[in-house]
């Protein structure tokens, strides 16, 4: 009986905790990541990406804005760019882990790249405007969403 009540209490606390925080716990500003063989195999912070949201991030001027530099297989090409290669078919050329590293920090592939590091360690950034300090360009969830979408481009 005593044992049961301890367990019961624990479950209550867990349920209450979840209810307060909502389904998604708030995201920390930064998760560290590891590169092996030019790939990041583990999703950032264990987040699960949603491809549809990733497409929105990739074409949004204030978030990913991949469209500023890449042709994407979506119909919004009035603000496109061609600094980088078209991304159609990327998943048939590269592994998901490699795609993740491209999006997180392209300078691993090319130290002189013009592509922003979307998930570089914030302390490495220089003279960031106040409103953006202490966090990378995209959140871990946004990175995973974008990676999930790119993984569908076969």
């Amino acid at each position: 009986m005593k044992r049961f009540s301890i367990h019961f209490g624990l479950v209550l606390i867990l349920v209450a905790g979840r209810a307060v925080a909502g389904d998604k716990p708030p995201e920390p500003a930064y998760f560290s990541w590891q590169v092996k063989d030019f790939a990041i195999d583990r999703p950032l912070g264990g987040r699960v990406g949603v491809a549809e949201r990733g497409m929105a991030v990739a074409s949004d001027g204030h978030r990913g804005n991949c469209l500023a530099c890449h042709l994407l297989p979506i119909s919004r090409d009035e603000v496109f760019g061609d600094l980088g290669p078209p991304l159609a078919g990327i998943a048939s050329r590269q592994s998901v882990g490699a795609i993740r590293l491209h999006v997180v920090d392209q300078s691993y592939f090319n130290p002189e790249t013009v592509m922003p590091g979307f998930y570089r360690r914030p302390e490495k950034l220089h003279r960031v405007a106040k409103a953006y300090r202490g966090r990378p360009f995209l959140s871990a969830q946004q990175i995973e969403d974008v990676v999930a979408w790119l993984a569908t481009l076969k």
């Binding site: 760019g81 061609d82 922003p116 950034l125 960031v128």
Partner: peptide
Amino acid sequence: HTRWGQVDIACHQCHDYHAGKHFRGQIL
């Protein structure tokens, strides 16, 4: 040649390497 801000790109990376290409629908 310094990388600036959260976007973390240096001036020369756009203006020396990519002049003539399209960025956000504009010609660099």
